[in-house]
Design a protein around this nucleic acid. Structure first.
Lengths: 217, 217
DNA sequence: CGAATCAGTAGGGCCAACCCTCCTCAAATC
DNA sequence: GATTTGAGGAGGGTTGGCCCTACTGATTCG
């Protein structure tokens, strides 16, 4: 495997060049260039198409999160490894949303950074030890948001559930018929049965019930 | 750094021993032992105190998720790397909640598995390429769930927002008219305006959009 | 200052499309 | 034989687009 082609974006010259030399000296990655702010990083990424951009999140002109978004808009194949000075929730969270695939605090040592670059270049998602706990906690919160699982609407037949799901997605009877390759009249009958079984008067209330049970999302 | 001390838990003998030999041959990890089911894995982890347990999620007697929980209850310092046969949401999610710190599909190759083991041993959290998209999507959903407050639909007038809210609650035009003490005809005009501004074709899609923005609940 | 313009609110007519109910029939499946 | 599935007819209610009128309050322009 050829070494990952890397661009480094960091406004702190000492850290930036230290990292560049450190990475280059290992021979495990090829450092294509460095950027001192977000705009430079975006331009450099567009020009060089690196495998990985090592991105400081705190940068002048355009911060790392915004730069990440712009880079991924243009080429979602580029992996972004976020380097955060602080391990606070907000910056980590923002970077994740922007589409970064790796997250390290700046205190990470050489092997950690190298491993993270390699992982990101391989399409993986990796979080450094300082953030690992946070990640699992985020997922735990996700769990409280989504009820585990409950079989929805057992009183409906398979077909009817299928139809209900499409109703919940906002489709008209005609669209449902097309999707399921059925006559619109048949769909209409299914729909009527669903309404009766859910004890709702119309489509609108069916959508509400279905979506509250988690369908159509 | 001494090579990570590893225990392998997998009920499929060929995969288990293949993995053991593959890992041992690299010299990068020390395979302490193997388990054929969840109970064995828990016992072995308690006895050997490995750095990492490579855990198949589908196992007899005690599945990987439950085994992970028990192992971490006793010693949260042990890293669990989950190997899932399927990359379906449920198993991945369950493993994350149980506290696993790594997640790979079984199709992963040697370098991926080695990197994941090393990462987990170092306290990191790592997701394989097959799951990376899912992870970012989970976070994206978290984002849609948590925005504390944002003024919804600023393009609508006060009246229109009021109407939209009632639409989202499943009311018919007539019911909305009664509730707001308006002519049904006025409501219909309001509704039409709302649809135009939301760029939706019908009530159903308006309900969906409104409820996704948190209205009507 | 007064007129004009504009956005919001409230109402109405018309019409086509869609929705929903009720009812029937037939084949397939269990 | 009962349930499910598929298909259809007939009819009334609802919906949504498009048109129009009228009043109000605010802002802008002459």
């Amino acid at each position: 495997m050829t070494p990952p082609r890397v661009v480094i974006a960091d406004d702190h010259p000492v850290y930036r060049d230290g990292l560049r030399m450190m990475l280059a000296s290992t021979g495990a990655v090829e450092v294509l260039g460095t950027a001192a702010d977000g705009l430079e990083a975006v331009a450099l990424a567009a020009e060089l198409r690196p495998d990985v951009v090592v991105m400081d999140l705190q940068m002048p002109r355009l911060d790392g999160v915004a730069a990440t978004q712009r880079i991924l808009e243009r080429d979602s194949g580029i992996g972004v490894l976020a380097l955060t000075m602080h391990d606070d929730d907000e910056s980590v969270f923002a970077a994740m949303l922007a589409g970064a695939r790796g997250y390290l605090v700046k205190g990470a040592d050489q092997t950690e950074i190298l491993r993270a670059i390699t992982a990101v270049a391989s399409g993986e998602v990796i979080f450094g030890p300082a953030l690992a706990g946070r990640v699992t906690r985020y997922f735990a919160r996700l769990a409280t948001v989504r009820p585990p699982k409950e079989e929805p609407f057992p009183q409906l037949t398979a077909r009817e559930r299928e139809v209900l799901e499409l109703i919940a997605a906002g489709l008209s009877n005609r669209q449902i018929a097309e999707r399921l390759v059925l006559s619109p009249k048949t769909v209409r009958n299914n729909v009527s049965n669903v309404f009766a079984k859910l004890q709702v008067a119309d489509r609108a209330q069916a959508i509400i019930q279905a979506r509250e049970a988690g369908l159509g999302r």
